[in-house]
Design a protein around this nucleic acid. Structure first.
Lengths: 236, 236
DNA sequence: ACCTGAACACCGTTCAAGT
DNA sequence: ACCTGAACACCGTTCAAGT
């Protein structure tokens, strides 16, 4: 631990690399870029470190662990979301628009949904989006407890949808692959035992359509919005 | 490496172990037991193989990969779910009861939600539970396409809730830990900038209560059921 | 056909040592 | 305080070789 008391006064600064020092910011920037370009699987502590030209251990001075890094990525994405000024006469449409906005951002950062799922989003940006959702729900005259539970339900749904999509993106299917899969699925449904699967067979068409995702999502936010509206206090 | 050419003719069958041979059944049985006793993380190809007294490579003769094993576990759990006979006069209550039943089973096999999330459940037992949900929704007079999208939305929600719970179970919190966390959370909410987080602060109580899970889940299934009911065709 | 050991290409995290 | 190399204790999957 003791140091030699004699120290040469180096004329040209120290020999240490001139690389920019690590920081939380730089780590999250790099991880975010990797997330967009290569997907969630590519964002490991080791690969982020490598991209920064160092070893995995170096990250732990700035980030507690992988979970915290995931949290920071979710928070960074939340920064991108934009919400309308609450309007009591239009709250249902605003709620749907905000859920679409949330899905838009999660699609723009594929993999962020995987980082978000099962996390309690307590970062500042994530909290701000919660605040915005609460504002819309209170404009809709929802009771406090209903609004509080709703801001739990809403991200749960949007994140789950985005997560499903990102899993399927991982499989890297082409348009043809999807078409092939859907037609296989349809014939699988039709091959089921009619005694035990009568409705599945009857609805085979409906069950295998709307795979595009957008229609399904529109259905989901319609159901949630209508369900919440049924809980709103009557005005006046 | 060479062996002596002389081999005694063993009077009692070959020297190979008398262990029961591997099979899909045995692999899923073992994995399921490990899932219940030790959680999802414990169910790796390597550990399942070890529990069966063999190496990981041996499993691949019976199971395509980890993903297929996950699928088989979900399907095994689906076997446990029981559904009511559809009753058009009571479909909303039946729908809620069935969602509770689904959550009950996922809680009984903690970790199964992690295996299920982001999966398309095409096993026979999983398909049967879809058939049951469809039966209830059609008893409620929902249009085909709405029913088809609803059987996507419903497991999505229940699985996401069960998944969240299983993540939190992994942290192995005691009653006291939770209480401490909630009170920390509450004071964190109250410490926020009132200019930017007015509603979050005002609703701090509601936002941190009902963490038990059941109330939150009841709220969710109420919202979904009411939302779906709003889409049901009028009778007659 | 089924099973195996060993290897390949990865993980997250810790720790003693360096500057 | 920050950074590092090396190690620890893991993953899923493949493959040549055995029976």
């Amino acid at each position: 631990m003791t140091q030699s008391p004699w120290q040469p006064i180096s004329p040209e600064k120290p020999a240490r690399p001139v690389r920019e020092p690590l920081s939380r910011e730089r780590i999250v920037d790099t991880a975010m870029r990797m997330l967009v370009e290569q997907g969630y699987e590519a964002v490991s502590m080791r690969k982020v470190a490598q991209a920064l030209g160092t070893g995995p251990a170096s990250l732990y001075a700035h980030v507690a662990n992988k979970q915290e890094l995931d949290n920071l990525l979710v928070n960074r994405a939340a920064r991108e979301m934009e919400f309308p000024e609450p309007d009591p006469d239009n709250w249902q449409e605003q709620l749907k628009a905000s859920m679409r906005e949330m899905l838009r951002v999660m699609r723009a950062y594929p993999g962020v949904a995987r980082a978000a799922i099962g996390q309690i989003p307590l970062g500042e940006q994530a909290m701000l989006s919660t605040e915005r959702f609460l504002a819309i729900l209170k404009a809709g005259n929802l009771p406090d407890q209903a609004a509080a539970w709703a801001v739990d339900l809403i991200p749960l749904y949007v994140t789950a949808v985005a997560f499903e999509e990102s899993v399927q993106r991982t499989w890297e299917w082409t348009e043809d692959d999807i078409e092939g899969f859907v037609s296989e699925l349809r014939s699988y449904f039709n091959s089921l035992d009619p005694q035990r699967f009568p409705i599945t067979i009857a609805l085979a068409g409906a069950l295998t359509s709307g795979g595009s995702g957008d229609e399904r999502f529109e259905f989901g936010i319609q159901v949630i919005t209508a369900g919440l509206a049924s809980l709103a206090r009557q005005q006046g």
